[in-house]
Design a protein around this nucleic acid. Structure first.
Length: 825
RNA sequence: GCCGGAGUGGUGGAACUGGCAGACGCGCCGGACUCAAAAUCCGGUGGUGCUUGGCACUGUGCGGGUUCAAGCCCCGCCUCCGGCACCA
């Protein structure tokens, strides 16, 4: 008997797949398309277990859908721009390009060794000129349409990475990449106007039923939509001070106003008052406090009086205007009305500065007293101290007051978002150059389309200089203005790498297309992505950016769909000993080692079997041993009895469907059904478990000698079933065994196995018998037996009689083919 | 603080719409094969108690409730994880 040698088998199969071009696809309108995509890796050096898991899940689905007759696009590529390449260059003196392409070579080999079925003819690397040139094209189009603009703004800056970061890339005040504290810096930067789509991106969250709730919630949370009203307060000199509030029902309780330190009125208001010096100092101090510092202050309310007052438009009350450190310039109008009675922050501020508290919302059945309150009341109630609105429920009052304000022309209902525009300038080298030229005469000049691409020069030494290395490289930045032909300077910042990953899924449809950005016809054949699989860490980064970018490209007529990803699966992390794998913790598992020791099939199987895809997977070395053992068991099942089954015709619908053969037949069909349903809903771990059960049943079947043709046919049928069900999970071993059986390879790869419903049910069913809800016994009866027969059989059982103890039976509940519950209290 | 998600044996995890809790795997215990070991195969394995080849009680974070029946539904808590966080 041939031994199971994973490497021999795997190398052999992979060579065959390669030769046959098994995973190549073309657009075929006669077949239903299925676009399966896994998030492409950053070529950091080596594949890690997270990749193995992600791509193993994807490969099962891709192969399964293929077997179901879909035209499956399953591509792979490289998110190849980014800082680690640059850091490697600085640390080791390797050029980022060499480092990146070497890593791609190595990692591609790893992916091939794992046997993933990708259409490698569609491979893309985002650092290729032929990729990013079209990104520059898109940038120019977006610039024309006003989706890109340049402005000076306080931005997040990582000192260690020496570059600007988008809001999404700051996690708890730290850089998402290096964990260094992020500071605020005033810089002129390029921005993508993602906020233009804030509302649509938010609202469409409710129209993505194929996405996990968790991710949609995170996106909604990030976009942060809130309904409210802008209200104009008048200053004493007649000027307007506009604020935003979601609680117009508390307008009568306003006792002061608060402006953000950066608010344009902050300084001008105080000018000429006794408070000018103090205000100036406060604003200066606030400027020094960047975001992370402010976050640390959390709740410590500080402010300063401007010396000016505003008039409440509803009741004419004069209220003092303060500058407060807790007011954010970026949100709403940068100014707020303060209602200490009904807002905790205002309450705290009022306590510090001795400002009055006026109750305007009274909870039912309670009586609030401003003198004894120790926190704001933010709940519902009826209005008091509110003029004509007294007695009204506060929820109703919100709309009534808005109506009133709009009628009087002093307020407008408004929607506000937390989402900010996406800053895409990076002061780094290894990225796509921004196609812009600065000319002293003509200003900002976009690079003409016929001068694209702006090629990233490869012949320069990369150093850490605190600015883009390109800004030290004359050959790159010294250019002539396309308009006036005078001396001009090229933009030396590069684009955020998240720009590349915002449209790569479109490029896979037409990777070699190079006469325009995208071959729209092919893009529209494949789009949307039917199933996207990746880590949850991109819930608000990549996934939000891509939804935005796809919309822009939709408006440019490059793609027909609005939403790029129909269904999303976010797989959990691979952890070990309860912690994320990391070099510093020393708990990293190396895929190369696993493939070496157990083979690709066992490695894949283990990743799929140990936990359901969405959950975190706690890696255990014992787990893979178990999977390896199982594969050997499958191998022996075929190899040990090849001589007796090879020439036999196989079947899974035997003429004699009784006794042991009946049991095996039942199990075969039930397993096919279960595995099919489980794959459809991504319960891959239970799908594998049920195949294991089938294997156990086959071994049970083999405990007795099986000599007749009928018995052997069924045996062969059961074995073939195992191989076909297992194929998407462990393609190498199953193909090898299939070949040993001398069967048609197309049957294994080309078609999923179907079950027969009538074989998934038994003639006899086991009924559980409960007395007062407690299980007491079971009995067998023919399926779909009459209720009366079931009742009698149950009541006749010895154990049941004993537990009834002669008491009168009040009721008998019968669940057909399952259970009887006898109620006798 | 707000918004999500989760809590099941020694362990990873099953149980689709309320219907036999613990599938499958790991570990452990016992046995077979062996001079021995590994590998392999077979059997057992939630807890407690007892008159121990059986029977009873108990058991899905805690406390209530609905129901003939609750891991699953409802109410109130606890713990853990994730996201947002002075967003007016």
């Amino acid at each position: 008997m041939k031994q199971y040698e994973p490497h021999v088998v795997e190398e052999k199969r992979q060579a065959i797949w390669e030769k046959e071009g098994l995973f190549r696809v073309t657009e075929d309108t006669n077949k239903k398309k299925y676009y399966l995509l896994e998030m492409f890796p950053y070529p950091s050096g080596k594949i890690h277990m997270g990749h193995v898991r992600n791509y193993s899940i994807g490969d099962v689905i891709a192969r399964y859908k293929n077997m179901r007759g879909y035209n499956v696009l399953h591509p792979m590529g490289w998110d190849a721009f980014g800082m680690p390449a640059e850091n490697a260059a600085i640390e080791r003196g390797v050029h980022p390009a060499k480092w990146t392409y070497d890593n791609i070579d190595y990692m591609k080999k790893q992916l091939k060794r794992l046997g993933f079925g990708y259409d490698w003819s569609r491979e893309i690397a985002t650092c290729d000129v032929d990729y990013y040139r079209w990104e520059q094209w898109m940038f120019l189009k977006m610039y024309e349409k006003g989706f890109v603009y340049r402005k000076s703004a306080p931005v997040n800056y990582c000192v260690k990475c020496q570059t600007v970061l988008a809001n999404e890339q700051v996690v708890d005040g730290l850089c998402w990449r290096c964990n260094e504290a992020v500071i605020q810096k005033e810089l002129t930067q390029w921005f993508f106007a993602i906020t233009r789509y804030a509302d649509e991106l938010y609202e469409f969250c409710d129209r993505l039923p194929g996405w996990p709730e968790r991710v949609l919630n995170m996106q909604k949370n990030w976009i942060g939509k809130s309904y409210g009203v802008e209200v104009d307060f008048l200053l004493e000199n007649g000027e307007k001070l506009t604020i935003f509030t979601t609680r117009p029902d508390t307008l009568y309780g306003v006792t002061f106003m608060a402006l953000a330190p950066e608010h344009p009125l902050s300084l001008s208001l105080a000018e000429g008052t006794d408070y000018e010096v103090e205000v100036r100092a406060f604003i200066e101090k606030a400027k020094q406090q960047d975001r992370s510092f402010r976050a640390e202050l959390q709740g410590t309310k500080e402010g300063v009086f401007t010396g000016r007052y505003a008039i409440n438009p509803l009741n004419g009350t004069k209220v003092p205007i303060y500058i407060g450190n807790f007011v954010l310039m970026e949100y709403g109008t940068g100014a707020i009305m303060s209602v200490p009675a009904h807002d905790q922050r205002d309450f705290e501020f009022a306590k510090v500065y001795g400002l009055p508290i006026i109750i305007t919302i009274m909870p039912e059945g309670r009586n609030l007293d401003p003198n004894t309150m120790d926190c704001a009341y933010e709940g519902d109630g009826y209005l008091v101290n509110s003029g004509d609105f007294n007695g009204m429920n506060n929820r109703k009052a919100i709309s009534s007051i808005i109506d009133y304000l709009e009628q009087k022309g002093i307020g407008r209902s408004t929607v506000n978002f937390k989402l900010r525009d996406w800053g895409i300038s990076r002061q780094r080298y290894w990225g796509a150059p921004i196609p812009i030229i600065y000319c002293d005469n003509c200003g900002i000049v976009p690079v003409p389309y016929d001068q694209l691409p702006v090629v990233l020069p490869l012949n320069l030494e990369v150093k850490m200089v605190g600015r883009s290395p390109l800004s030290d490289y004359e050959e790159f930045y010294k250019v002539k203005c396309p308009i006036c032909h005078g001396d001009a300077k090229r933009e030396t910042d590069t684009m955020d790498t998240f720009v590349e990953s915002s449209w790569y899924f479109l490029k896979y449809a037409c990777p070699e297309y190079n006469v325009g950005p995208l071959d729209t016809k092919r893009v529209n054949y494949w789009m949307p992505v039917d199933q996207y699989i990746g880590g949850v860490e991109h819930a608000v980064l990549h996934l939000l950016y891509s939804r935005f970018f796809n919309r822009v490209l939709n408006e440019l007529g490059l793609v027909a769909v609005r939403e790029p990803f129909e269904n999303l699966l976010t797989q959990g992390m691979v952890i070990k000993d309860g912690a994320k794998m990391s070099k510093s913790k020393g708990n990293v598992v190396d895929p190369d080692y696993l493939i070496e020791k157990y083979g690709a099939d066992a490695t894949r199987l283990c990743c799929l079997f140990a936990a359901p895809p969405e959950k975190d997977l706690d890696w255990s070395d014992k787990g893979i041993e178990g999977c390896y053992r199982f594969l050997q068991r499958v191998w022996r099942l075929v190899a040990e009895r090849l001589d007796i089954i090879k020439g036999i015709k196989s079947t899974i619908i035997p003429k004699d469907n009784s006794g042991d053969m009946g049991l095996l037949t039942l199990r075969i069909h039930k397993t096919i059904k279960k595995v099919t349903e489980d794959i459809e809903r991504f319960h891959l771990n239970t799908a594998i478990a049920s195949i294991m059960e089938l294997v156990n049943v086959i071994y049970k079947y083999l405990e007795k000698p099986r000599n007749t043709d009928e018995e052997l046919s069924l045996l062969k049928g059961s074995i073939e079933t195992v191989l076909r069900l297992l194929f998407p999970f462990v393609p190498h071993i199953t193909e090898e065994l299939w070949e040993m059986l001398g069967a048609d390879m197309q049957l294994l790869r080309g078609a999923w196995i179907e079950y027969r419903q009538e074989y998934t049910i038994k003639d006899m069913v086991t009924i559980a018998v409960q007395v007062n809800g407690k299980l007491r016994d079971t009995f067998e009866i023919e399926r779909d037996a009459k209720q009366e027969a079931i009742r009698e059989a149950a009541l006749a059982l010895e154990k049941v009689k004993r537990h009834i103890e002669g008491r009168p039976v009040k009721k008998v509940v019968i669940v057909p083919n399952k259970l009887v519950n006898i109620v006798c209290p």
